[in-house]
Design a protein around this nucleic acid. Structure first.
Lengths: 159, 159
DNA sequence: CGGATATTGTCTACGTGGAAACAGAATTGC
DNA sequence: GCAATTCTGTTTCCACGTAGACAATATCCG
């Protein structure tokens, strides 16, 4: 093994330079890292990763409208429309037009959707318990808190 | 009109429930939030977001091979091949086959690529300085440190 | 009321990124 | 040396997600 001069010849020896301080890149790489683990942990439920969060959100917010859910998950309405249609075709959610606004589309879980969501929950929690990467559980908790604050998400308002 | 990060744009705020504790979703939302800001800050350079990190990485690691760069940025070789081709066509990078391994492809910035990278650097740094979201600079520094540790980017990994 | 504007979901075209198969080159085993 | 295997980049096809235009509905204002 030579000295450290031959960087760039192996995976672990690449210099990130200023990019190592880029929050955007760090978030991107972390998201990819977490996503890969997430996908392998839940693939056996035959539900796409993006659809999982939709199911869980509808379970927490029955009757939520597509656009509201889309902006909560930071995806576009066009994409939400496709996924909602697919989940409806799969029999997991039900879409209904509310009488007070016939443009809108309210989303609710079907019985089958509830079952699927309940089936996924343990795997989700197990994934969360393992998804610390190189962090201690305390550091992971700090990380979550910081991310929620970064997103200005910490406003758990109760009705 | 919702200009800020108010996911509860209606009377009832959207409840994230257990997903508010999901590191994967928090990372995903944070990455999307950062990405949007990143894109608007650098779109005038006419370089795609994914290509910016490639240019910066090549600048830090001249002669790096496509596959090594791909795994460092956690993207697939197939995709790296396309982007490298596009950057070569744009005259920003130069691709050369090293004599010791004629399968490989070494990447370097052209003079034009160096210029473009130098042009982008101030905007990148300005973006980093503004991209704290709801965090204080100290919290942002902690967040970066935690993300690097999560990715095991600080500790040099040996086989 | 009736026209102008905004909102909601949807559709089409496009860009981004991956999976799998492939060709060429390097390495290993015989 | 030669076949088999492995590694590198590439190609093709496909899934995910967005941008922009659209129709239908709701709201605002004269």
């Amino acid at each position: 093994m030579a000295d450290m001069l031959d960087r760039g010849t192996h995976d672990g020896a690449v210099r990130f330079g200023p990019l190592a301080e880029s929050l955007g890149l760090l978030l991107r790489l972390s998201q990819l890292h977490s996503f890969h683990d997430f996908y392998t942990a839940l693939e056996r439920h035959h539900v796409r990763p993006g659809e999982i969060s939709i199911l869980m959100m509808i379970r927490e917010n029955p009757g939520i409208r597509q656009g509201v859910l889309a902006s909560a998950l930071m995806i576009k309405r066009a994409h939400m429309a496709k996924m909602a249609r697919r989940l409806e075709d799969a029999g997991l959610i039900e879409r209904s037009v509310p009488p007070d606004d016939r443009r809108a589309m309210e989303l609710r879980l079907t019985a089958q959707g509830e079952l699927r969501a309940a089936e996924m929950t343990p795997d989700l929690e197990a994934h969360e318990a393992r998804n610390f990467g190189g962090l201690t559980p305390e550091e992971a908790a700090t990380l979550r808190t910081l991310l929620r604050k970064y997103l200005a998400l910490d406003a758990p308002k109760e009705d």
